[in-house]
C-alpha cells in the first residue's frame, strides 16, 4: 500500500468514525497517572517506566480490535507497511498525530518513530530531582500499546524511547524492533 493511501485512510477514519474528547482531559489524566506512579513507587523511575509499559500493553491488546474494526484493514504487506500503518493510521485516529517513520535498519526489522508533537506531554516539565531527566520515559505507555497491539496480530516487537524533548533532547524518538512473527498463532490461511 502506498504511503498516501495510509494517510488517506487515517484522515478518513479520524474525521468520520472517531469520537473526539477534550485534549486537556487526556493530558491531565495521563499526567496524574504518571505522577501517582512516581509517588507510589517512591521515585523509582525504572519501575515507573516498566509499569507504564505494562499498562500500555494491556491497552494495546484491546485497542487493536477497535483499530481493525474501524479501519477495515487487511493484513499488512511487510514490516514497512506495518510501520506506515502505525504512524499514519494508528497514531492518527487515536491521538491525531502522525509521527515520522525513519531510520530503518538495513535488515528492515527496526525503525524509529519521530514525534513532532505529543499530546500526552503537553504542559509537562519533568521533576527537578536530578534523576527524572535521566531515568523517566514519560510517554512510555505508548511503547506498551504498540507491543500489545502488534502481538495480537502475531508480531512480537520491542519498543522503547531513545530520546525525549522532555529530557532536553532535540526530538522525541521511539525505536521499534521486530523480534519475530509469531507464526504458530497465525490464523490459518493468513501467511
Amino acid at each position: 500500500m502506498s504511503t498516501t493511501k495510509h494517510a488517506r485512510i487515517g484522515e478518513e477514519v479520524w474525521k468520520s468514525r472517531v469520537d473526539k474528547v477534550n485534549a486537556e482531559l487526556v493530558t491531565l489524566t495521563y499526567g496524574s497517572i504518571v505522577q501517582q506512579l512516581c509517588k507510589d513507587l517512591e521515585g523509582d523511575y525504572t519501575e515507573v517506566n516498566k509499569q507504564l509499559d505494562k499498562m500500555g500493553y494491556n491497552i494495546g491488546l484491546r485497542l487493536i480490535e477497535d483499530f481493525l474494526a474501524k479501519t477495515n484493514m487487511g493484513r499488512c504487506n511487510g514490516f514497512r507497511d506495518t510501520a506506515e500503518s502505525i504512524a499514519k493510521i494508528g497514531f492518527k485516529i487515536f491521538l491525531n498525530i502522525t509521527p515520522t517513520v525513519t531510520n530503518w535498519s538495513a535488515d528492515n526489522k527496526s525503525f524509529s518513530l519521530v514525534f513532532e508533537e505529543n499530546p500526552l506531554a503537553d504542559f509537562v516539565e519533568l521533576p527537578d530531582d536530578g534523576r527524572a531527566q535521566n531515568e523517566l520515559w514519560y510517554s512510555n505507555i505508548l511503547c506498551g500499546v504498540l507491543r500489545g497491539a502488534l502481538e495480537m496480530v502475531q508480531m512480537q516487537v520491542e519498543a522503547h524511547f531513545a530520546s525525549d524533548v522532555l529530557r532536553g533532547n532535540d526530538s522525541t524518538e521511539m525505536r521499534v524492533e521486530l523480534i519475530r512473527i509469531i507464526d504458530d498463532e497465525l490464523p490459518p490461511g493468513d501467511e
Partner: peptide, 27 residues
C-alpha cells in the same frame, strides 16, 4: 485449498439457514 494463501471456510449454506464466518486479523 489448492490455491496458495486461501483463508478457511467462510460460508455454509443449507436449505434453512446460511452461516457466515468472519475471522478478524487477531484470530
Amino acid at each position: 485449498s489448492p490455491v496458495h494463501g486461501s483463508g478457511g471456510l467462510e460460508v455454509l449454506e443449507s436449505e434453512n439457514f446460511r452461516m457466515q464466518c468472519f475471522q478478524t486479523l487477531t484470530g
